[in-house]
C-alpha cells in the first residue's frame, strides 16, 4: 500500500492505496466523489475527466500515486451552496445535457479550456471537448453554453476596464 496526499477541491486529503489504484477509483471509492464517472476505463470516453494542476486529465488513466502532492479539481468542486458555476448554470439554461452521464467530464474539460483561454473560438471549444464522448446531444448546445460563458466573461472584463 502507498500513502498519497493530494489537494481535492481545495482540501488536503490523504489515503492509503494499492499501487494499481487509479485516480478515478481513489476519488470515487475512497473519497466518495462519484461525480466523475467510470465509463470505458481506458481513456476513450472522457466521462472521468478531472483537472490536475489546472490541466484536464482522464482520471482512469492516471494512477492515484501519480497524483501525490498535486492539486485535483472534480465536478464537485465547482458549485458553492449559493450558486452554480457559470458553466453549470449555462448548461442548465440551454438544455446542454440529456442523460447527463458525460456532463461532469464535459464541464471539467470546458473549465480547463476557459481557465487557460477565456475567449476561445468555436474551433478551440470543439477541440477541447473532443475527448469527451456524448451519445445524446450532438454537442451543439454544449458548445453554445461554453461560448455563452466565454461571452459573459468577456463582457465582465470589458465592463471592468471601463469602470
Amino acid at each position: 500500500m502507498a500513502k498519497v496526499t493530494l489537494t481535492v477541491n481545495g482540501e488536503a486529503r490523504t489515503a492509503s492505496v494499492s499501487p494499481e489504484t487509479t485516480l478515478l477509483r481513489l476519488l470515487r471509492e475512497e473519497f466518495g466523489l462519484t461525480g466523475s464517472k467510470l465509463g470505458c476505463d481506458v481513456g476513450d470516453c472522457g466521462a472521468c475527466t478531472v483537472m490536475v494542476d489546472g490541466k484536464s486529465v482522464n482520471s482512469c488513466l492516471m494512477l492515484a500515486v501519480q497524483a501525490d502532492g498535486r492539486d485535483v479539481v472534480t465536478i464537485e468542486g465547482l458549485a458553492t451552496m449559493e450558486r452554480l458555476h457559470p458553466l453549470q448554470q449555462l448548461f442548465e439554461d440551454k438544455g446542454s445535457l440529456q442523460c447527463g452521464f458525460c456532463g461532469p467530464g464535459i464541464i471539467i474539460s470546458a473549465k480547463a479550456l476557459l481557465d487557460e483561454n477565456p475567449d476561445p473560438t468555436e474551433e478551440e471549444i470543439r477541440d477541447a471537448l473532443a475527448g469527451n464522448l456524448c451519445r445524446c446531444t450532438g454537442y451543439s448546445k454544449m458548445i453554445e453554453a461554453v461560448r455563452a460563458v466565454a461571452r459573459a466573461g468577456r463582457d465582465e472584463r470589458t465592463a471592468g476596464s471601463v469602470a
Binding site: C45, G138, M142
Partner: peptide, 13 residues
C-alpha cells in the same frame, strides 16, 4: 469498445 467502434466527437459534429 470505443477505441474501435468509432462514434462522432465534437469535431465530427
Amino acid at each position: 469498445n470505443l477505441t474501435n467502434y468509432i462514434m462522432p466527437t465534437s469535431l465530427d459534429m
